[in-house]
Amino acid sequence: MTAIKFELNGKPITTDADPEMPLLWYLREQVGLTGTKYGCGIAQCGACTVHLNGVATRSCITPLQAVVSAKVMTIEGLSTAAGKATQAAWQTLDVVQCGYCQSGQIMSAAALLAKNAAPTEADIDAAMHGNLCRCATYHRIRAAIHQAATNLKAGSA
């Protein structure tokens, strides 16, 4: 078995873990990065969302072998401008309730804002549709994405 190499939160990783193992469980149980959550295991809830080369990706159905040579970013390593703005807006508006879905929500929102600086309601619906929140914090998620977009614009102006 050849070792799998990729970049995780800016650091090189080399592992001989089972290439079939979903990235989610590798992150959580082999690396100890528990901010990425398990909710369904079948790409239906978004709790496990990470960035794979900047794209919001469900880590529960992404086998380790699919991330070879890729850049993986988790909530713990979220350091992009869009990511920081997203977290700040989430904090200002107190979006969270139980909080369990929120790593995934923030990762999806940060990926959206990185490629779309002024998302419309429809853009938000499309980008966030895969992220369930059982506490139904959607009202504030939407408001926080708009606020993050506004702050990003002000910051880059």
């Binding site: 398990y38 904090q91 107190d94 979006v95 969270v96 909080g99 923030i106």
Partner: peptide, 19 residues
């Protein structure tokens, strides 16, 4: 008053039993 658990729940630091 801002929620006291917001910082840890927006950074992945909050621990649940699963963690």
């Amino acid at each position: 008053v801002p929620r006291i658990d917001t910082p840890e729940k927006t950074t992945g630091r909050a621990h649940y039993t699963i963690d």
